[in-house]
């Protein structure tokens, strides 16, 4: 098996690491970088809880190889809060009870973050379709949809201010 050295920016920090070809990006983020906010559910692209931003776009990190991230800019859930202040999405999930066990939350947050960049004022149906790749087995999604909608309004206000 080939080994590879990559240089990757994660949440603004530059890392250089060596790994086996078969190392998944999700495992690299958790095991090699110690960023365990990114969760692993199914590890075959069904549950979406390992969703990260890869060069600004939401992707499932279990379907990427770590070697493919060479030169990429990655953002994980740890990159959301700034100086101890929660991101509007995180605040809204808190306020609207958008999580129960919290296992799906990192993926929900990262996919919602990307979704709101392409659709800043979504309808409920658009939100539901936007998060179709993220499974939640607790909430029934109602409060997650409410939280994302509230975050959209907050983020639009922040932008206008």
């Amino acid at each position: 098996m080939t080994r590879h050295i990559i240089t990757v920016t994660v949440n603004g920090t530059l890392y250089t690491r060596e790994m086996d070809a078969r190392k998944l990006l999700s495992d690299f983020i958790r095991e090699d970088l110690g960023l365990t906010g990114t969760h692993l559910g199914c590890e075959h692209g069904q549950c979406g809880t390992c969703t990260i931003l890869f060069n600004g776009v939401s992707m499932k990190s279990c379907l990427l190889l770590a070697t493919q991230a060479d030169g990429a800019k990655i953002m994980t859930v740890e990159g959301l809060a700034k100086d101890g202040v929660l991101h509007p999405l995180q605040e809204s999930f808190w306020e609207h009870h958008g999580l129960q066990c919290g296992f799906c939350t990192p993926g929900m947050l990262m996919n919602a973050l990307y979704f709101l960049t392409v659709n800043p004022r979504p309808t409920d149906l658009e939100i539901r379709r936007g998060i179709a790749g993220n499974l939640c087995r607790c909430t029934g999604y109602v409060n997650i949809v409410k939280a994302i909608k509230a975050a959209a309004e907050k983020m639009a206000q922040n932008k206008g201010a």
């Binding site: 969703t51 890869f54 776009v57 939401s58 379907l63 990307y114 936007g130 790749g133």
Partner: peptide, 9 residues
């Protein structure tokens, strides 16, 4: 086709 993340990649 798939979902948002799948369509992105």
């Amino acid at each position: 086709v798939g979902d948002l993340q799948v369509r992105n990649r």
